[in-house]
Design a protein around this nucleic acid. Sequence first.
DNA 1: CGGTATCCGGTATGATACTG
DNA 2: CAGTATCATACCGGATACCG
Lengths: 130, 130
Amino acid sequence: MSRSHTDVPDGAAEFADEACPITEVLDHVAGKWSIGILVAAAHGPIRFTELERTVKGISRRMLTLNLRKLERDGLLTRTVHPTVPPKVEYALTPMARELHATLGELVGWAERHRPAITAARAAYDAKPAA
Amino acid sequence: MSRSHTDVPDGAAEFADEACPITEVLDHVAGKWSIGILVAAAHGPIRFTELERTVKGISRRMLTLNLRKLERDGLLTRTVHPTVPPKVEYALTPMARELHATLGELVGWAERHRPAITAARAAYDAKPAA
DNA sequence: CGGTATCCGGTATGATACTG
DNA sequence: CAGTATCATACCGGATACCG
């Protein structure tokens, strides 16, 4: 995204300057699966297959990609146990744990307003031309 | 996100089932431009062109689409002033203002850890095979 | 078990042009 | 000013198959 780093009016603005890099970061946690993975891993180290089952709906491919992305961003640690049946565990980093708390609020907001949002959509769709 | 309305059992589990609706909601604010638009509008009613300039980087098309989506979700109100030069103002709904506060924390987190994330990426990219 | 590789469609986004 | 219409494209993400 990129709201750039150019000028910033005064009103709603100084957002742009700081938002650019911020959004870049946010986009990583804003992905379709990122939050789900983060939450799933919040309870402690979790294995690949576990994640696959927990974040039900995610494909192996997407799980891997997101896991790599989160790992790269320093939100998850990937620990490979050189055992016979491969065992890889993913765990949140301290930084991610902080995020998790904030995410909890976001989720709380979503839960609180889900009915309202659903209603708003219905209303909006009901009178498109009205 | 996840634990919806129940509490999280012990594992990371029944997350999937209940997360669905939550994710659906979150996905709307998690879009590439949603947060930017929301923040830009947080300072008060803002006009289309203003948004176009503030959320710099966004195309007119995406602005419109996101604006509609946010309006449909009941996060933004669209007020058309029947003046000669069309004037349309977008403002946050109370529900969105609440979200804004939470978003602020998310942004705060992003700001606090941006350096760490950047460093993590650099480190990750530096020793891929190491 | 834990991935990686490939094929493929749907959507998000960008660029451009036109309109009320 | 505030969109809408259209076109082309990049990438997301699912399904499937193969590998260490």
